[in-house]
Amino acid sequence: MSQKILIVEDDPAIVVSLEFLMGQHGYDVRVAQNGEDGENLAREFRPDLILLDVNLPLKSGFEICQQLRSEPDFDRTYILLLTAKGREVDIEKGTALGADAYVTKPFSTRELIPQVQRLLTEPRSPS
């Protein structure tokens, strides 16, 4: 069974690339375009990894991250924050709220794929 990736991102321009890219590498991909849909879809889909944008309509990526981390069901789910906020303070905040990695836009898809693959080789150990 292929591993599952959930993309929560509201900008269609990057969603098409990410969805295509993850599909090309054999992952089972779902997409949500706002925060609330993203959280609901996460509970239903049970992804192995979430590519989570920070600036989302309805609910921010930080909030979703903090919420999911408080639920034991998501102990084994990797959360990778994608954001255009390049400030150190945001990275600190993301890490404090339980994100496993923090990717700042613009990034290279050529580096993102190995990063995702590396994370998914081992099951996540809950902190």
């Binding site: 990057i14 690339s17 890219l21 700042t104 836009k105 613009p106 290279s108 898809t109």
Partner: peptide
């Protein structure tokens, strides 16, 4: 940053 990320991807 967002626009450049989109173009680059």
């Amino acid at each position: 940053r967002t626009s450049i990320a989109n173009v680059r991807a």
